[in-house]
């Protein structure tokens, strides 16, 4: 088999894996948009905040320690414990649920029936507030995140492909785990929305929130629920991306990777986020592989948007988005 074809296959597989990571970020956007019509600009920062909180809790860091020490003249930094990842994740989920409640109680509840642009602006404010809050709580240092997920080349795939093709493919163990976790996450979300009372209520609100209100569904509860789920998805995305680069403030920029996925997959479809992520991941990696060297490289960021724009021209609602038909 020609070398270029083998390399192309390796790039294709890695593109799929990268696409899963993009889809994980996009999922959080979709969940909130679907249930409340809000484009949550703060989703990337939520991933950062969740990852910061997870590392802080696991490492026993005292939240707001700089502030406490500055005010009271103390020297407290650590509680002195190192918690297992599972405990850290559970406690972080509790924090994210608390955050979801606070977002609803202090911001969103007061903006019911406002224009979408007002709600969008509110999430911009929320993003900057959470970034500052994360800095105050946990500090600006880069933190190593180790929840026990393996990283590095998968030797089984490397050896198997070497035996078969004479060239060993590189697939990162972390990417394989991300794919497995994403599959479980999507399956769980599907089961939740199909087979639980809260899930059905969530779908009812997504379809028509006024009709849902009229049959006694509490919008407040649903919004807290959906922000909590989005917070959980943000935690998963934060873990995966944080394991790659350490937990640091540029983690919030992963939201930029989700935008073309949303444009392509649609803002209201969970399968759309997954398929969109895969198309963007594969598309940008193959383009960089084939065309990048001819144009000086670094094509991935802009090509993802070009790809999304092409889809947008032909399907403005995205691949799986709901077509908006307004009758006069």
């Amino acid at each position: 088999m020609p070398d270029q074809l083998l390399f192309g296959m390796e790039v294709f597989l890695n593109g799929l894996m990268a696409g899963v990571l993009y889809a994980l970020v996009a999922l959080g956007f979709v969940l909130i948009y679907k249930a409340s019509g809000i484009f949550n600009y703060a989703q990337g920062v939520m991933a950062l905040f969740a990852a910061l909180t997870l590392v802080g809790i696991m490492e026993g860091q005292v939240p707001f320690s700089h502030l406490i020490n500055a005010i009271f003249g103390t020297e407290v930094h650590h509680f002195g414990w190192h918690l297992p990842a599972v405990v850290g994740i559970v406690l972080t989920i509790v924090v994210m649920i608390g955050l979801a409640w606070a977002v609803n109680a202090f911001i969103m509840r007061h903006l019911v029936n406002q224009e979408p642009i007002i709600l969008f602006m509110a999430t911009i404010g929320l993003a900057y507030f959470m970034e500052g809050l994360g800095d105050l709580m946990w500090g600006a240092d880069i933190k190593k995140l180790d929840v026990g997920l393996p990283q590095g080349i998968n030797t089984a795939i490397d050896e198997a492909t070497y035996d078969f093709f004479g060239y060993g493919f590189f697939i990162d163990n972390l990417d394989i785990w991300a794919t497995v976790i994403a599959i479980i996450l999507v399956a769980a979300l599907m089961l939740f929305s199909q087979y639980t009372k809260q899930g059905r209520a969530l779908r009812a609100v997504a379809d028509d929130h006024q009709a849902a209100l009229s049959v006694g569904i509490s919008l407040n509860f649903i919004w807290v629920l959906v922000w909590s789920i989005a917070g959980f998805v943000a935690l998963v995305a934060g873990i995966m991306w944080g394991a790659k680069s350490g937990v640091q403030f540029s983690l919030s920029l992963i939201a930029l990777k989700a935008l073309p996925v949303l444009m392509l997959g649609g803002f209201t479809s969970i399968p759309g986020a997954i398929v969109g992520g895969l198309i963007i991941g594969v598309g940008e990696k193959l383009f960089e592989f084939a065309i990048g060297p001819l144009v000086g490289g670094a094509t991935e960021n802009w090509f993802a948007y070009v790809l999304a724009l092409i889809f947008l021209v032909f399907r403005p609602q995205g691949l799986f988005g709901e077509k908006i038909i307004e009758r006069v």
């Binding site: 390399f7 390796e10 790039v11 890695n14 894996m17 990268a18 590189f170 990162d172 991306w241 790659k244 680069s245 540029s250 983690l251 920029l253 992963i254 990777k257 990696k285 960089e288 592989f289 990048g292 000086g296 490289g297 670094a298 991935e300 960021n301």
Partner: peptide, 21 residues
């Protein structure tokens, strides 16, 4: 061999696959 990485550089799989090749 020149390999550009776009800002912020969170995703570099393509560049390092090329280095591997």
């Amino acid at each position: 061999v020149l390999l550009a990485v776009d800002h912020p550089g969170q995703e570099q799989k393509s560049q390092w696959l090329q280095i591997r090749r």
